[in-house]
């Protein structure tokens, strides 16, 4: 009996086989419809923004691990690629590419790596990148190319999003064509325009069990609740702006969202309420990014106070 080949290890000796890079890849797959919709509606500029964003995010992470931290590279875990895609989908397709690079460096360099890398960041990196750009370059970040489906009609038209036009009083939300909103034939960030594409991704993520339903559904509930109180059409609110993209892909980010199902529900409802409140009564026409970032900050607190319900009732007198 040769005992040299026996390996000692503590239990459990089996593993689910799921991996974190695997989860990241599932999210990337789930984003394919949204990316396709962005390319369809916005054409070549969208592809440029997407590729530059991915390249800049991955390069930033690689440079920081290689030359500042002097650690093995972590780009193989796919999380930088995912941040790149998500950031691009949160930008207008005609944003100058150097701004895309600046946003990527902010997202990976400051929001993620400065906090300690994957798993240690408090705020969603892609959203930090987006908000950084929004505050620094408000004009470039809020002039959106109008969708020109089919790559042909690239006449360089730009305009405000539906939400800002409603906010300015130029459009009555009650007259908005919900079907066009649902399909994505509207102005907006690359990834947020097509609700249909996002919902396909949502169904995929639920099917492969990478995310749970709690956060996106709770966000919708919170938003609709405020809309009903404010007398605003909830369907238009749900389908417009970054709400769906944020609810499905940004707010569900593992690292920056709560650990328990009940915590997720609270987190989601509050994101919905904050978003609707900013949209109705705030200075910005769009509030999703801020709402998610605010609740990212509240997540450690939620984890501390919303504990899972224990199996056992607390210790009682034991009859022996």
């Amino acid at each position: 009996m040769n005992t040299n080949t026996m390996i000692f290890s503590p239990s459990p000796h089996l593993h689910t086989g799921r991996t974190t890079p695997g989860a990241m890849r599932h999210v990337l797959v789930a984003l394919i419809p949204s990316v396709a919709a962005a390319l369809y509606f916005f054409g070549l500029p969208a592809l440029e923004v997407l590729l530059v964003s991915i390249a800049a995010c991955v390069a930033t992470e690689w440079l920081i691990t290689r030359y500042m931290l002097r650690r093995p590279s972590t780009i193989a875990d796919c999380s930088a690629v995912l941040t790149g895609v998500l950031l691009a989908l949160n930008l207008p397709a005609n944003l100058p590419l150097w701004m895309v690079v600046a946003g990527s460096v902010m997202a990976i360099g400051i929001a993620k790596m400065a906090f300690g890398g994957l798993g240690c960041n408090i705020f969603n990196p892609a959203l930090v990148g987006r908000v950084f750009l929004l505050i620094s370059f408000p004009v470039a970040m809020t002039s959106w190319p109008l969708p020109s489906a089919g790559f042909g009609d690239a006449d360089g038209q730009t305009g405000a999003t539906l939400l800002s036009r409603i906010s300015e009083g130029a459009v009555d939300p009650a007259t908005v064509d919900s079907l066009q909103l649902f399909l994505g034939n509207i102005g907006g960030s690359m990834g947020e325009v097509s609700a249909l594409a996002i919902l396909i991704g949502f169904v995929y993520l639920l099917t492969v069990r990478v995310i749970k339903w709690h956060i996106p559904v709770a966000i919708a509930v919170g938003l609709v609740a405020v809309d009903l109180l404010a007398g605003y059409p909830p369907v238009v609110d749900l389908l417009s702006g970054g709400l769906l993209l944020g609810a499905v892909f940004m707010a569900t980010d593992y690292v920056t969202s709560p650990m328990t199902s009940r915590g997720m529900l609270l987190y989601g409802v509050l994101i919905g309420i904050i978003t609707a409140s900013i949209r109705r009564w705030g200075a910005y026409p769009e509030g999703m990014s801020f709402a998610i970032l605010i609740m990212n900050g509240a997540t450690p607190l939620i984890n501390r106070y919303i504990r899972p319900q224990r199996f056992s009732p607390r210790r009682k007198e034991v009859p022996a």
């Binding site: 290890s9 798993g119 593992y254």
Partner: peptide
């Protein structure tokens, strides 16, 4: 060997969902 190299915790909550005693394994 069975075990893979541990990666950083991404706070996905899978352990919380799996725990039959309702604890917070992470």
């Amino acid at each position: 060997k069975g075990r893979r190299q541990p990666q950083p915790c991404v706070r996905c909550g899978a352990c919380v969902d799996a725990c039959p005693m309702g604890l917070e394994p992470y």
